[in-house]
Computed example of a mutant assay.
Amino acid sequence: MVHYKLTYFDARGLAETARQLFVLADVEFEDNRLTVEEFQKLKPTLPAGQVPILTVDGFEISQSATIWRYLARKFGYAGKTPEEEATADSIVDHFRDFLNSFKHYGAGLFFGKTQEELDRARKEIVEPAAQVYFSILKKQLEKTKTGFLVGSELTYADIAVAENLTTLKNTEFFHPEEEKSLASFHQKVLETPKLKEYLEKRKFSTL
Rank of each mutant, 00 (worst) to 15 (best):
M1S: 15
Y4L: 06
L6V: 05
F9Q: 08
A11T: 09
R12N: 09
R12K: 15
G13I: 04
A15V: 03
E16Y: 06
A18H: 08
A18M: 11
F22Q: 09
L24S: 11
L24V: 06
A25T: 06
A25Y: 12
A25V: 08
D26C: 13
V27D: 04
D31F: 11
D31P: 03
R33F: 03
T35M: 07
V36L: 12
V36R: 15
E38F: 01
K41T: 08
L42H: 09
L42V: 00
K43Y: 06
K43N: 02
L46S: 02
L46H: 05
L46Q: 04
P47L: 01
P47V: 00
A48V: 01
G49Q: 01
G49W: 00
I53E: 00
L54M: 01
T55P: 02
T55C: 02
V56C: 04
V56F: 01
G58K: 12
E60C: 02
E60K: 13
I61Q: 03
Q63E: 03
S64E: 01
T66N: 08
I67D: 00
W68C: 12
R69V: 00
Y70P: 01
R73H: 13
F75E: 13
G76D: 11
G76F: 09
T81M: 14
T81L: 15
E83C: 10
E84W: 10
E85G: 12
A86L: 14
T87V: 10
T87R: 15
A88C: 12
S90M: 15
S90V: 07
I91V: 10
F95G: 03
R96L: 11
R96Y: 01
R96V: 06
D97W: 07
F98R: 03
L99F: 00
L99E: 12
F102L: 11
F102P: 00
K103V: 00
K103E: 02
H104R: 12
L109T: 01
G112D: 03
G112F: 11
T114H: 09
Q115E: 15
E116Y: 07
L118Q: 11
E124W: 09
I125Q: 14
I125M: 14
E127K: 14
A129W: 11
A130F: 15
Y133G: 07
Y133K: 12
F134L: 09
F134W: 11
L137N: 07
L137Y: 08
K138Y: 01
K138P: 00
K138C: 03
K139M: 07
E142T: 06
T144K: 12
G147W: 10
L149C: 02
V150G: 05
G151K: 10
E153Y: 10
E153F: 07
T155S: 09
Y156D: 03
V161R: 12
E163M: 10
E163I: 04
L165G: 08
T166N: 14
N170R: 15
T171F: 07
F174L: 11
E177T: 11
E179G: 01
E179L: 12
K180E: 14
L182F: 07
A183T: 07
A183W: 10
H186E: 06
V189E: 03
E191R: 13
T192G: 05
K194L: 10
K194H: 10
L195N: 04
L195R: 11
E197N: 13
Y198E: 04
L199M: 12
L199C: 08
L199H: 04
